[in-house]
Write a protein that binds this DNA or RNA. Structure first.
Length: 317
DNA sequence: CGACTCCTTCAATGCAACGA
DNA sequence: TCGTTGCATTGAAGGAGTCG
């Protein structure tokens, strides 16, 4: 392979082909016609001395060699895009960007009201969308550019994924005020593990799982609880608890914010719970984009105080 | 089996870069 | 300026696989 005469434009074609597995869709993606993509693939095959993509049924399937190129090629193109983007300026007062954020409805309560105020004051042309996604899809959604960033617990991800920690999530038990079982407890404002395990629980779970971190924490001390209902939204969990004798384990910051409105009591959990770090993830290709940096900064500023919530004292009955 | 989709290949043509 | 080269386009034909 003669690098000196190799057309680097072909790398864009190969990247698009590896992404779409289709000459037609690759062409649409990079602004070429399907025959042009096909011709480019022919030149790639000749230059690299490998079939690269072979037709199997209705699709083009990459060879092992082509697959081995996919990740470094994407990295190379991302870096090139960053270099060519250069230093940019972002003026929120005249910006008309749209930012798509992914996260649970925790952020609808804890972020969006303040974010809306900030946007209205400083960036009136900017639009924000909070979309919910199941956790398995975060990386895919970022890679496909379906969303600009996601707010999630710390997680492993592909090498292109950037991570910025924001706050530790602490957990509390919530129950309605006047809950008969809790009112009968000897120490007001505290729930013992026997009562905790004996009550019926509502669980936040977008995927419909019947177990979560609290169940793992209980299992460590040889106990288990009974989850009788799961809901895909945290506010729904809180509402269900407010109108029943169910209890739930939810992020303390959320519990405190809505406890007065929903007439809930907030109690420390009777078992040691993990405190996962919550942060932002995004695709590396956006790291140096001025607009993206701006929205990351705004979000981080709004959510930073969540790390300062009192840990043990101050629970309300 | 026919309709359909998608890829490959070819022909004709246009355009831009390059060198004489 | 003009011819050459390379790559793009459109349009068409044909092969291969899927689906009803």
């Amino acid at each position: 392979m003669n690098f000196g005469s190799f057309d680097l434009n072909l790398l864009r074609v190969l990247d698009a082909l590896l992404e779409t597995r289709s000459a037609t869709h690759a062409g649409q993606r990079i602004g070429l016609s399907q025959p042009a993509v096909s011709a480019a693939l022919s030149r790639l095959r000749a230059a690299l001395n490998d079939p690269l993509l072979v037709r199997i049924g209705p699709r083009l399937e990459p060879t092992d060699y082509a697959l081995s190129l996919a990740e470094p090629l994407r990295t190379l193109l991302d870096q090139t895009e960053t270099i060519l983007s250069g230093p940019q300026r972002f003026d929120p007062s005249i910006a008309d960007d749209r930012f798509r954020l992914s996260g649970s409805d925790f952020f609808a309560e804890m972020l969006m009201p303040q974010l809306a105020e900030k946007i209205a004051q400083e960036a009136p042309g900017v639009r924000i969308q909070l979309v919910d996604l199941v956790p398995d899809n975060y990386a895919g959604a970022l890679e496909r550019q379906d969303v600009d960033l996601a707010m999630v617990p710390q997680m492993d991800g592909p090498s292109w994924m950037e991570w910025q920690p924001m706050f530790r999530a602490r957990f509390s038990v919530i129950a309605r005020r006047g809950h008969p079982r809790l009112a009968a407890l000897p120490t007001p404002g505290e729930i013992d593990i026997d009562t905790f395990c004996d009550l019926s629980h509502v669980l936040f779970s977008p995927e419909g799982n019947l177990a979560a971190m609290a169940d793992a924490a209980l299992a460590k001390v040889g106990r288990k609880r009974r989850v009788v209902m799961t809901l895909p939204v945290m506010y729904g969990v809180c509402s269900a608890v407010a109108e029943t004798d169910y209890v739930a384990v939810v992020p303390e910051q959320l519990a405190r914010k809505i406890s007065t409105k929903l007439n809930l009591q907030v109690l420390p959990p009777p078992v040691t719970m993990p405190e996962p770090m919550i942060g932002m993830i995004w695709h590396r290709r956006r790291t140096n984009a001025a607009a993206h940096g701006w929205i990351r900064g705004v979000i981080a500023d709004i959510l930073a105080p969540l790390d300062d919530y009192p840990q043990v004292d101050g629970y309300s009955r």
